[in-house]
Write a protein that binds this DNA or RNA. Structure first.
Length: 485
RNA sequence: GGCGGCGUACCCAAGUGGUAAGGGAGAGGUCUGCAAAACCUCGAUGCAGCGGUUCAAAUCCGCUCGCCGCCUCCA
């Protein structure tokens, strides 16, 4: 398995610290507002990576934190006129709601910054004792000049950064790049007691404390959005390695952004679409597929069209599964074996899917392979194979191969009926299933008496309300319906 | 200013040295009462442009053009 490591800027073969086990820390969200589709991407991508690791037999300890104390939370609380911890609770809940809909599994450990104040103070104290940090008026700053490795994650030099620093220089800092480990609180702000007076943790220190506690001094994977590389992850690395004297993280993984008109989607630009908005128009599986159809490090330009394409892809997929199910439901038939490439396609699919995922989690390629297999299955069924034991086994195996990959992608894993019902809901179809069935029956009668005008009128009527009809030649059902996507 | 990334057919998109996956749209065909779906066929002699390295380059190197990201909170 190869992983692109941000720190070395190259793909590396993945070897866990402890054979068979993987420690993985993902930077979650600051719970001060609802999540947008960019947050969804990050969550979905790392969810898939976790699932893939597990499918490869690794025992994964997956930690994802919530930042529940921060300037933005405090200002949000003022704006909403509620307490800061109510803000955190409210948006943590909303986060779970969105992520559960998207099929993102909860982490094994979901620590919160405020639950680790003791550990944070411990580390800050240690850094001060080691001379890696200094105290100024109740604030504690990390001294970047004392850590020779500063910049090694993001690939920048201290001198180059200082040249371009646009930040207002705090005269009390020894170096403009020094950052707060502990911030003294103003009256009325949330505060915890510390050796430096009442205050709260700086942004970066929580992740150092929580990863140390739950994954140890050195762990395998640390992941997050590419915008966290600097300064967040760079600073985490500096703190942690200064404190433990050991390597902090072995593989850094960062996902690319979602863009709107080529620009990064972000709260500050206001060009974002919330998860709730997107899920109001599209099925969660559709959204998941859309997010995974691009490699996780590449940008995704957000627009409806590619999501609609993902929807059509799933429609095609579930129609194929339906065909397989119909084939399997047929009574046993005798018949000579026909030449079929399907058997080979299924086994090569299993290999290629694994290869794609092994190569830096190339879900886009892996999904491409799924659709190659879908085509092969359709081709097989089009060849009208006899429903004998051998062919049934082959069809079952094809379904099984897809189900195996579905475990990793957490897509392609519903039944055609579930998909259709989901589409009725997503497309807000007014007609009920019995109504549709009744019109189909009426149309059947018209067709039997060769009243084509009547038959076509009914078909047109249903299409207007979003239902497409397909007349089948064989099988029990003469006409099937589906939702127009 | 520093550092980094991207530019592949009408659209989305994979592909880091061996002769361009996959999907959508389009054209023709098989099937159909007609459709739809599915399948078949067609579709970039070329991967922003120019030069170079190599038996071989979308893939490596150099330059140019265009777009974006990080350096400030940010998935």
């Amino acid at each position: 398995m190869k992983i692109y490591n941000t720190q070395t800027a190259s793909k590396e073969t993945f070897t866990p610290l402890v054979p068979g086990r993987v420690g993985m820390y993902v930077c979650g969200v600051t719970v001060y507002d609802v999540c947008h589709i960019g947050h969804a991407r990050s969550a979905v991508v790392f969810d898939v990576i976790r699932r893939y690791m597990q499918s490869r037999g690794f025992e994964v300890k997956f930690v994802k934190n919530f930042t529940d104390i921060d300037d933005k939370i405090i200002s949000r609380a003022r704006k909403e006129n509620i307490s800061w911890d109510e803000v955190a609770r409210k948006y943590t809940e909303k986060y779970y709601e969105d992520m559960h809909k998207l099929g993102v599994r909860d982490a094994d450990v979901e620590p919160r910054a405020t639950g680790h104040i003791k550990e944070i103070i411990e580390i800050v104290k240690g850094l001060v004792d080691k001379g890696r940090a200094y105290v100024v008026d109740g604030d504690v700053y990390f001294s970047v000049e004392n850590f020779s490795g500063y910049g090694k994650l993001s690939g920048r030099k201290l001198d180059d950064m200082m040249a371009g620093a646009r930040v207002e220089v705090d005269e009390r800092k020894k170096n403009p790049m020094d950052f707060a480990l502990w911030k003294s609180s103003k009256p009325g702000e949330p505060a915890w007691d510390s050796p430096w007076g009442p205050g709260r943790p700086g942004w970066h220190i929580e992740c150092s404390a929580m990863s140390l506690k739950h994954l140890g001094e050195t762990f395998d994977i640390h992941a997050g959005g590419a915008d966290l590389i600097f300064p967040h992850h760079e600073n985490e690395l500096a703190q942690s390695e200064s404190y433990t004297g050991k390597q902090f993280v072995r593989y850094w993984i960062h996902n690319g952004f979602i863009t709107v008109d080529k620009e990064k989607m972000s709260k500050s630009l206001g060009n974002f679409f919330t998860i709730e908005e997107v899920l109001g128009k599209f099925d969660p599986e559709t959204v998941r597929l859309f997010l995974l159809q691009t490699h996780y490090r590449s940008p995704i330009e957000f627009s409806n069209e590619p999501i609609e394409e993902a929807e059509r892809s799933l429609e095609r997929f579930y129609q194929t599964i339906e065909r397989v199910d119909e084939f399997l439901a047929k009574p046993e038939q005798a018949g000579a074996e026909k030449e079929s490439g399907l058997k080979e396609s299924v086994s090569s699919f299993r290999v290629k899917f694994g290869e794609a995922m092994d190569d830096d989690f190339n879900t886009a390629l892996a999904i491409g392979h799924v659709f190659e297999l879908v085509k092969e299955i359709n081709r097989f069924l089009d060849s009208k194979p006899p429903r004998n034991a051998a062919n049934a086994e082959l069809a079952e195996d094809a379904k099984k191969a897809i189900a195996e990959s579905a475990l990793v992608l957490n897509a392609f894993n519903r039944t055609p009926e579930e998909w259709t019902r989901a589409m009725l809901k997503t497309k807000k179809i007014e007609a009920t299933e019995p109504e549709i069935e009744q019109l189909i029956e009426e149309r059947e009668k018209a067709r039997d008496s060769k009243d084509w005008a009547r038959a076509d009128a009914i078909r047109a009527q249903l299409e207007k309300s979003g239902i497409l009809l397909e007349d089948k030649k064989d099988g029990e059902k003469k006409t099937v319906w589906r939702v127009k996507v």
